[in-house]
Nucleic acid binder design. Structure first.
Length: 563
RNA sequence: UGGGGGAUAGUUCAACGGUAGAACAGCGGACUCUGACUCCGUUAAUCUAGGUUCGAAUCCUAGUCCCCCAGCCA
């Protein structure tokens, strides 16, 4: 605990950790054991990251361990692709389950035995009613359900039927094994819940060995008990499953007694964290794939250039509680900038090029200038950038008739080109349509390296630029929120989709050093944001993703109170 | 009109009967070869009504509002 003493401010504090601390203090457990239990029916998203960081984080902090356990009890929805993706994403996020990789399907035989145990104890029965009948007799939120006519079947008959279910004698849905609890319970989960259903489906791991599969409720708690989980942490919607979780553990000869605790799942503004909706986005072609950079999936965030440390930092900032809430996307962006600012190399890239001709710079001449790779980290070194008579600057860095607070280029205005020279705009050349297509400027040789000239005159802006002669062309993809609403309507999400969630710029010009950027390696395009090469990049056709823009005070001023 | 949860600055989370605090956002300023970063300052909250107490966000009572549950999904 020296670590917590040296860095007390870092000690995470929330009701889950309070419970664990108290349990440990009371010696209820020798070590804490948690688990992250995804169902392999989709990709992990940032909401899962909250759970992963909580479960693995708690284990780490208290010197325990965390298992990765696939909750693979429904072969009709689960796929190997998802299993692989989940393992990859958890590792990428920075967590390691060591030898503790498990599957609920590892316990199918034991679970089956426990089902027979319940039957023998007169606490479970095979019900022959149809699904419709079951629904009709379950009662409603305010009315109790009705007992099944098969509820009092004797043990032998139940055992025989259940074994024949396993043997494959019946069709899907023909029969079901139910717990015998209380059809009048206010908690609907206690109204003789399903324990096993017939599913003639091939399982990613057990193949065709089984044609009956345990329900979530019958698998989860017992799996926890088998693995010696001490704290089974899940989301709020499982709160009213807890009595069933406890009932099962209390009525079965399980090897340990875990406890379930629930916390509020993450909601993020302007996106959706629902596997159902995310799956539909992919299948419906609203995004390119699970790893589309617009997706809140870990795969999508990774492709977009978000470092795992940023996600961990974000999760730390949002805390853990029981109140439903919607976290501002801006907070995630803050964590991303915070992480990237420290590490990303600085480069210059012009996204929407506007040609500049330096009239007093000799044609045919060029020179190399030194540029820092990171302004706050000399160890990051320098690179050389070529300067010449023809350059490109950002279109939006020029305005013919600028508003009061616009500091950049306009006719007669002088600015600094980063690491290069002061230039002064003499004239804007227009095409027949009246659009500015070129700037005629002059430079001051005494400002080389971007330094202040001997006469001490200052400029109000420093612009990024690239030399026209050796800039490399590239495509840059800018991303905006996937949805237009803070809280999209999950029921009819299509109506809330942002039609401008991606903007593809195909005529960008990058400084040559960028052609050596490695996939996934973050860089800052100065004055613009953080970017990273996309896997779509090919030799001669670079593609960059904008991870997140820089904080832009000017944009706020410009949109707020216009000129 | 059933059962289970939850309400604290704009947002998210603290405060565990003893001065309501942080982060993000906002606003103002300093610095600046990125209108970035950094730094300084600042605005801003206990769902309501009663009660207990020297003292209540916290305990009690009664309300209000929000979320979840009627899969052989998890």
């Amino acid at each position: 605990m020296t670590a917590t003493e040296t860095a007390p401010a870092e000690a995470a504090r929330d009701f889950i950790r309070d419970i664990i601390r108290a349990d440990l203090d009371a010696k209820r457990h020798k070590t804490v054991v948690t688990r992250f239990p995804p169902e392999p029916n989709g990709y992990l998203h940032i909401g899962h990251a909250k759970s992963i960081c909580l479960n693995f984080g708690v284990a780490e902090e208290f010197g325990g361990r965390c298992h990765l356990r696939f909750d693979d009890t429904n072969p009709t929805k689960e796929e190997q692709e998802y299993i692989d993706a989940i393992e990859r994403d958890v590792r990428w996020l920075g967590f390691d389950w060591g030898q503790h990789l498990y599957h609920a399907s590892d316990y199918f035989e034991q679970l089956y035995d426990w089902a027979e145990h319940l039957i023998r104890a007169g606490k479970a029965y095979v019900d022959d009613q149809t699904q419709e009948k079951l629904r009709a007799t379950r009662g409603t939120l305010t009315e109790p359900g009705k007992n099944s006519p098969w509820r009092e079947r004797n043990v032998e008959e139940n055992l025989d039927l259940f074994r024949r279910m396993r043997a494959g004698e019946f069709e899907n849905g023909a029969r079901i094994l139910r717990a015998k609890i209380d059809m009048a319970a206010g908690n609907i989960n206690l109204r003789d819940p399903a324990l096993y259903r017939i599913l003639h489906a091939s399982h990613p791991r057990t193949g065709d060995k089984w044609c009956i599969y345990p329900s979530y409720d019958f698998a989860h708690g017992q799996s926890d008990a088998i693995e010696g989980i001490t704290h089974s942490i899940c989301t709020l919607e499982f709160e009213d499953h807890r009595p069933l979780y406890d009932w099962l553990l209390d009525n079965l000869p399980v090897p340990s007694r875990p406890r379930q605790y629930e916390f509020a799942r993450l909601n993020l503004s302007y996106t959706v964290l629902s596997k159902r909706v995310l799956t539909e986005l992919v299948r419906g072609g609203h995004v390119k794939a699970w790893d589309d950079p617009r997706m809140p999936t870990l795969a999508g965030l990774r492709r977009r250039g978000v470092p795992p440390a940023a996600i961990r930092d974000f999760v730390k900032r949002i805390g853990v509680a029981k109140a439903n809430s919607v976290v501002d996307m801006g907070l995630l962006e803050f964590s991303i900038r915070e992480a990237l600012n420290k590490t990303a190399a600085r480069r210059m890239a012009v996204l929407r090029p506007l040609k500049v001709v330096i009239e007093n710079y000799p044609a045919g001449k060029s020179e190399e200038l030194e540029a820092a790779n990171h302004p706050d980290d000399a160890a990051a070194g320098v690179r050389r950038v070529r300067f010449g008579r023809e350059l490109y600057v950002e279109r939006e860095d020029f305005m013919e008739s600028p508003p009061k607070k616009f500091f950049r280029l306009s006719p007669g205005r002088e600015v600094r080109l980063r690491y290069a020279y002061f230039i002064k705009c003499r004239e804007a050349v227009k095409n027949a349509a009246g659009e500015v297509i070129e700037l005629r400027c002059s430079y001051d040789p005494e400002t080389r390296g971007g330094n202040t000239p001997p006469d001490g005159r200052k400029v109000q802006a420093t612009l990024h630029w690239v030399s026209a002669a050796d800039a490399v062309p590239a495509e840059v993809r800018l991303y905006n929120p996937l949805f237009t609403q803070t809280v999209p309507n999950a029921g009819d999400f299509a109506a809330d989709l942002n039609p401008n969630s991606v903007e593809v710029l195909t005529d960008c010009r990058l400084e040559p050093a960028l052609s050596k950027a490695k996939a996934g390696e973050p860089v800052q395009f100065e004055r613009q944001g953080y970017f990273c090469p996309d896997p779509d990049s090919k030799p001669g056709r670079l593609v960059f993703n904008r991870t997140v823009g820089l904080r832009d005070t000017w944009a706020k001023v410009a949109s707020g109170k216009d000129g």
